[in-house]
Amino acid sequence: MADEVARITGRGVAETRRLSGGDTAAAFAVRLDDGTEVFAKSTSPSMPGAAAAEAASLRWLAEPGVVAVPEVFGEGENCLVTEHVATAPPSARAAEELGRGLARLHAAGAPAFGSPPPGGPADAWIGLAPMRNEPEEDWPAFYARHRVQPYVHRGVDEGVLSAESAKVLDQVCESLAELAGPAEPPARLHGDLWSGNVHWGRDRAWLIDPAAHGGHRETDLAMLHLFGSPQLDRIVEAYSEVHPLAEGWRDRIALHQLFPLLVHAVLFGGGYAVQAVQAARRALASH
C-alpha cells in the first residue's frame, strides 16, 4: 500500500495506519513525508474498475461545489487515495447543511437516468455487488432493467428468492410507470447513501463511498431511511426548504428501497429477501 500511495501522490510515505470498518476494501490513514495525512483504500482484484468508478463518482459529486466530498488525489488499478477527514459527532447544523447541499446536488442533474459519472465505467459496484449504469429514456425503465430485475434473477438462481417472491417483484416492475409518482428530471445521485456513507466531520457532513449515477432523487432519501441516520428529520426538512419533494414521496420510500434490499439479499442472505418482498408489497399497496 505504501508504495502505491507514493506512486499516486508523488511523495514519500512516513507512516501507514490501518483503519477499522469497510466491508469492500482495506482502509488506511497515511502520513506523507511532508506531514500531510491522506486516506487510502485498496479494492479487491475481484472488483475490477472499483477504484476508478469511485474516483469518478467523487469527482462528479464534488463538481457543483454544493456538498462536502473528499478530494481525490489519484487512483490506481486497485487503490484510491483521497483527502483524509477527521471524524466528529453529528450536529444539527451539519445535518441541515447536508440536507440543503443534497437538494442542490440532485438539482445539478445528470445526462440521463442510468448515466455513469463522466469518465466512470458503465460496469460499477455498489458495495460488493456489480451495478450496471446504462442510460434509459425514463426512470421506470432504468430502475426495472438495471436495478431490480438483475437482482431478482440472481436471487432466484442462487435460491435466495422463491418463484412466488419473484412474481411479486416482477409485478412492481410491470407497474413502475404508475408507482413512480410525478415525472422528475434525472438527478445527480450519490447512489449508496446509507448512514455509513455519511461521514460526520467538524462542522459538516461529508459524502463518501458513492456509487454515483443519474437517477431519481427520492432514491437517495430512501437510502437514508433504510437503516436510519443521525439527524434524519433535520436533513429532510432542510432538503425540502431548497427543493420540495413531490407529494406522496414517503409512500414511495419502499419502492426505492427495493434495490438496496435486493443487493443485500444476494450478498447476505434470505432475511433481506423477505424485507424486499415486504417492501414490494407495500409499494404495490400504496398505489
Rank of each mutant, 00 (worst) to 15 (best):
G228F: 03
P230E: 07
A273I: 03
V263C: 04
P260L: 10
F259K: 02
S229H: 14
A246R: 14
A265G: 04
H243C: 10
P244Y: 03
I253E: 04
W249C: 01
H264T: 05
I253A: 00
V263S: 11
G248S: 12
L261K: 00
R250V: 12
W249K: 11
Q278T: 12
H243A: 15
V266Q: 09
F259A: 00
Q231H: 15
E247Q: 15
I235V: 15
H256R: 07
V236S: 10
P230K: 10
Y239R: 10
H256E: 03
A254D: 14
Y239V: 11
A276E: 00
Y239M: 14
Y272E: 02
L232R: 10
V236E: 12
G270P: 13
H264E: 00
Y272P: 04
H243R: 15
V277R: 07
H256C: 09
A273K: 07
D233L: 15
G248N: 05
V236I: 14
A254V: 07
L226G: 13
L232Q: 08
I253T: 13
Q231V: 05
A254K: 12
Q231K: 14
E247F: 15
A238M: 11
Q275W: 05
Q257P: 12
G228N: 13
P260H: 05
E247Y: 15
Y239E: 08
E241I: 06
S240E: 15
A273T: 02
G248K: 06
Q257F: 04
V277P: 06
Q231Y: 12
L232D: 08
A246P: 10
L258T: 01
I235H: 12
G228Y: 13
G271E: 03
F268P: 02
L245I: 01
V236T: 06
L245H: 14
Y239N: 10
S240Q: 15
F227N: 00
A273Y: 10
Y272N: 00
A273S: 06
A246I: 01
L267S: 06
A254S: 15
A246N: 05
E237W: 14
G248H: 11
R252D: 12
D233E: 14
V277S: 04
A238R: 12
V266G: 09
V263P: 14
L262S: 03
F227C: 01
L267Q: 07
L261F: 01
G228R: 08
A246V: 09
L232N: 12
L226S: 06
L262G: 03
R234W: 12
A246E: 12
L261Y: 07
S240L: 06
L262F: 09
G228V: 02
H264M: 01
G269N: 04
V236P: 15
H256Q: 05
S240T: 04
H243I: 05
Y239L: 11
A276G: 09
L226V: 03
R252L: 10
L226H: 08
Q257E: 08
W249N: 09
E241W: 14
A246W: 03
Q275H: 04
R234D: 11
L267G: 06
P260E: 00
I253G: 10
E247P: 11
G228S: 03
G248M: 09
L258E: 02
V277C: 02
L255H: 02
I253P: 13
